[in-house]
């Protein structure tokens, strides 16, 4: 549904589906074995049980095989997270402030909006902080999320290829209107974004400088 919507979406989905696939196979094996045993060794068919105390090679097998599989899953998860944590040098910084129950986005020139407008393809670095309680900035389509905590600046980044909009939700319970703390991230073509950014900056009497060049100092 959101294929390629962020640099992470496909990877997260692939990791998820891989674990779902392995889990489904193992679960299927467990259920089939269980049902077969219930049927084959019912008291009617098998009145005399055999007491098998255990089997060390089997125990080793079902300790080591899951261990290997789990380490593979761990590595995939770690690898995907590493990509999320490495912010590209050319990312444009945008400051995000959360308060009960709204989001504010502040661009390098001081322009503030309540919806996140970004140019496509451009890496965006979000610096997150809260004015009151804990929130969490969640863009489901991009598969990213980071808690927004008072007295602390957390960082999250993304870029997105298509000019369209996606939901931003608050994922950390923050009181009465937590469920309504939604806004949008709107990706625009570079030209459309420039036009918007120039116009909005002028309206808010902020200096205009194009966003797409290397990150301006703040």
């Amino acid at each position: 549904m959101f294929t390629g919507s962020s640099p992470f979406a496909d990877y997260v989905d692939a990791t998820f589906l891989l674990i779902v696939g392995i889990s489904s196979l193992v679960l299927l094996g467990l259920v089939v074995a269980m049902i077969y045993f219930l049927f084959r060794y019912s008291r009617k068919r098998n009145p005399h049980p055999t007491n098998i105390e255990g089997n060390v090679p089997l125990e080793v097998a079902w300790t080591v095989i899951p261990l290997v599989l789990f380490m593979g899953m761990f590595y995939m998860g770690w690898e995907g997270y590493s990509r999320m944590s490495e912010v590209p040098d050319n990312a444009v910084p945008i400051h995000v402030t959360a308060r009960m129950w709204t989001w504010t986005f502040e661009y390098p020139n001081g322009l503030q909006t309540d919806t996140l407008f970004v140019p496509v393809q451009q890496p965006i670095k979000l610096s997150l902080t809260s004015m009151d309680v804990n929130h969490s900035m969640y863009i489901p389509a991009f598969r990213i999320k980071k808690d927004v905590i008072p007295n602390r600046t957390n960082v999250m980044w993304f870029s997105t290829p298509e000019p369209r909009s996606y939901d931003i939700a608050c994922a950390e319970y923050c009181g009465l209107r937590h469920a309504y703390m939604y806004t949008k991230v709107v990706a625009m073509t570079p030209e459309a974004f420039d036009q918007w950014y120039r116009a909005r900056s002028a309206k808010a009497s902020k200096d205009y400088a194009p966003l797409r060049s290397a990150a301006p100092a703040r």
């Binding site: 997260v12 779902v20 899953m73 998860g77 690898e79 995907g80 997270y81 990213i144 994922a171």
Partner: peptide, 13 residues
């Protein structure tokens, strides 16, 4: 699935 970091970030909370 939750233990895998990349997936956790998406489905946490």
């Amino acid at each position: 699935m939750l233990g895998a970091l990349a997936v956790n970030i998406h489905v946490q909370d």
